[in-house]
């Protein structure tokens, strides 16, 4: 994935459950600052919650960075973990596929809720997810 465009507006370490809530709050505030519409904010923050929880539950923790991109104005997050990675990305993106306690709708659901979704993962080298949306 390409280099981040600028300094992140926020950076959240995902080490415990409270940090998933902290990630939601940070993204929610960043979108408020852009004058985001309620539905767009709800969709994006929900997707962030799924991705942050995945990094914590499957990746053993990680880092979530929030970026404000200009022309056109949009929000972007990058979430990295150093976990075991995902062996079969297509399978992981399919609704109903779950290796943990979830319903298996998280990853595929997050992709449907955002305008741009990129995922990079290799077994043994962690997972990085980038998501973007208009405010």
């Amino acid at each position: 994935m390409s280099a981040p465009p600028a300094e992140p507006a926020a950076r959240i370490e995902l080490r415990q459950e409270r940090d998933v809530a902290a990630a939601r709050i940070a993204v929610s505030r960043a979108m408020d600052a852009m004058g985001a519409r309620a539905l767009r904010k709800t969709r994006f923050v929900t997707a962030v919650s799924e991705i942050a929880r995945n990094a914590l539950d499957h990746g053993g923790g990680g880092v979530l960075e929030v970026y404000r991109l200009e022309r056109p104005l949009r929000i972007m997050i990058r979430c990295r973990d150093e976990g075991p990675g995902i062996a079969d990305l297509d399978q992981a993106m399919t609704d109903g596929f779950s290796t943990a306690r979830s319903m298996g709708k998280g990853l595929g659901g997050a992709r449907r809720l955002v305008e741009a979704f990129r995922i990079e993962s290799r077994p043994g080298s962690g997972t990085t997810v980038e998501m973007e949306a208009k405010p």
């Binding site: 539905l39 709800t42 659901g109 809720l113």
Partner: peptide, 14 residues
């Protein structure tokens, strides 16, 4: 339930 939450849940398939 907020309207935006209802719409998002349907999209999540829940």
């Amino acid at each position: 339930m907020r309207p935006a939450v209802a719409m998002t849940l349907v999209e999540l398939g829940m």
